[in-house]
């Protein structure tokens, strides 16, 4: 799917939405159909048999707790899966990620992670053509408190590929 083909318009909750704040800040932009759909039926939501690398991604602040595991064939990510408990943004991001990385080489995946971070950094970034459907998650960039969620699966995958067991996306606790 190409950027721009997003399907927020026919979201049934549209009519219930509060008055639209600047477009990208709207709830419907965040919970657009593709994210809801990947949250409801995440792809690759199991650890692949015989995986060689895995890591746990834990966000103590939000309670997101996932594991990402990879089957490698040489330099290529043959199959990537995840499991755990997480919010809709993390789950959809993990689902989209596992699809995107399939068959790509490690260096391409790491480059993808860099590009993904860049588009999430700034709501005004244009789509990155390399990222394909992952661009759908760009809407998260308008919700600074949720960017960490979209990044968690990627950080976890990077940790797995680097041979680390765990990433902790929280370095600092806020006050309760």
């Amino acid at each position: 799917m190409l950027a721009g083909s997003e399907t927020g318009g026919d979201n049934k909750s549209m009519s219930d939405a509060p008055p639209q704040t600047p477009a990208s800040r709207s709830l419907d932009a965040l919970y657009k159909r593709i994210i809801l759909e990947h949250n409801r039926s995440p792809r690759n939501a199991r650890l692949p048999d015989g995986y060689q690398a895995s890591a746990r991604g834990f966000d103590a602040l939000c309670g997101d707790d996932i594991r990402v595991a990879v089957c490698l064939e040489g330099e290529k990510l043959q199959e990537t899966g995840f499991e755990g408990e997480a919010c809709a943004v993390t789950t959809a991001s993990a689902s989209l990620m596992t699809e995107w990385v399939r068959g790509r080489r490690i260096d391409q995946v790491l480059d993808g992670a860099r590009r993904f971070r860049r588009v999430l950094d700034n709501p005004d970034q244009p789509d990155d053509p390399q990222l394909g459907e992952l661009n759908q998650l760009r809407s998260v960039s308008a919700f600074p408190s949720r960017v960490r969620n979209a990044l968690l699966p990627w950080k976890t995958l990077e940790a797995a590929l680097a041979g680390k067991d765990e990433v902790n996306s929280v370095t600092k606790e806020p006050n309760p």
């Binding site: 965040l30 103590a60 939000c62 309670g63 997101d64 919010c87 919700f143 408190s145 309760p176």
Partner: peptide, 23 residues
């Protein structure tokens, strides 16, 4: 997930807390 709840509810002007509450 509480995260999603917090974000959506915020859009209706309601501030609540989600997470582990330092406990």
């Amino acid at each position: 997930h509480p995260n999603d709840l917090g974000t959506i509810i915020d859009h209706y002007g309601v501030a609540l807390r989600t997470g582990h509450h330092c406990a």
